[in-house]
């Protein structure tokens, strides 16, 4: 019976995850243009990929975006979780407020943020009409700054989830230890740095992995907010891959970039899965 139950899912995953990954990897060694063509060209598509300045920009942006997104969401999420954990009133309301951005689709998020960050209509317009005439906020249209608007929108969207994970972690900490620490007269910041934060280690790991994979997969936000612009200043690997595959009819290069992305994803995920699965079966 167990085998029968498992087999449909397993078959689906084998074909639709690993089959398709293999297919992509094979295509990356072909000269495919619009549709798949199996004329093998060796590593040529990878060479073309790394010769493309747009791809280099995409990788640099990934580093900026990924770094700030992970740090920003982790810190803010942890901070909010700690605040909410202070036996506050209206906890449910606050939680819902911080969680709701997770519920929105990127089309909606894009509509909101494009509007908020639009200099002529949004935040800048509001501040000026409130009397702050010199207020300028034009990140969305400045090539060097536009990537940060994506960080802002991204952090806004994911922080609630991070908060929920940390909150679950905080609630799982043994109260006895904390009480003992307080009795010993340990100052509050030391309780946090010495006991609570270390105890949240598994939560940090989870949060990191979730954020990292969301960052690498991030596609929706960019498309909704800037479509990769101004210029190519907010290109990310995922948008690069999409445009190569579907807009430019460079399926081979698209597949090569997808393979590079998958390998980097795997290098983050596999060690994590390995450490998680090796010893989580405590009797």
């Amino acid at each position: 019976m167990p085998a029968i139950v498992l087999s449909p899912s397993l078959a689906a995953v084998t074909v639709c995850v690993y089959g398709f990954i293999a297919y992509t990897a094979i295509l990356s060694f072909t000269g495919s243009k619009m549709f798949a063509r199996f004329d093998f060209v060796g590593w040529r598509q990878y060479e073309r990929l790394f010769e493309n300045p747009r791809w280099i920009t995409a990788i640099e942006n990934m580093a900026i975006f990924g770094g700030l997104y992970i740090i920003g969401a982790t810190c803010l999420g942890l901070f909010i979780a700690i605040l909410i954990d202070q036996k506050i009133r209206l906890e449910g309301v606050f939680r819902a407020v911080f969680l709701y951005p997770m519920a929105l689709s990127f089309v909606v998020t894009g509509v909101i943020w494009q509007w908020l960050l639009n200099p002529g209509l949004g935040l800048e317009h509001m501040m000026r009409s409130l009397g702050w005439e010199s207020f300028t906020f034009q990140w969305l249209i400045e090539p060097e700054r536009a990537i940060y608007t994506i960080v802002i929108a991204g952090v806004w969207q994911v922080t609630g989830f991070v908060m929920a994970l940390f909150l679950a972690g905080l609630r799982g900490i043994d109260t006895e230890i904390l009480r003992a620490a307080r009795v010993d007269g340990a100052p509050i910041h030391k309780v946090y740095t010495r006991i609570i934060i270390p105890a949240l280690r598994p939560a940090f790991l989870t949060v990191f992995v979730i954020e990292a994979h969301l960052a690498i997969k991030s596609y929706d936000l960019v498309v909704a907010l800037t479509k990769g612009g101004p210029g190519v200043s907010t290109e990310l690997p995922s948008t690069f891959m999409y445009s190569m595959t579907f807009t430019r009819n460079e399926l081979g290069v698209g597949a090569a970039s997808a393979t590079v992305m998958l390998v980097s994803l795997a290098s983050i995920i596999i060690p994590y899965l390995y450490s998680e699965l090796r010893n989580d079966r405590h009797a």
């Binding site: 747009r54 090539p143 612009g229 210029g231 445009s243 807009t247 430019r248 009819n249």
Partner: peptide, 19 residues
């Protein structure tokens, strides 16, 4: 031009225009 070349020119034009 076919899409690949057309977009390659787009890249340069738009990057120049925005920098």
């Amino acid at each position: 031009e076919p899409a690949a070349i057309q977009r390659a020119i787009f890249d340069v034009v738009t990057q120049h225009f925005n920098s």
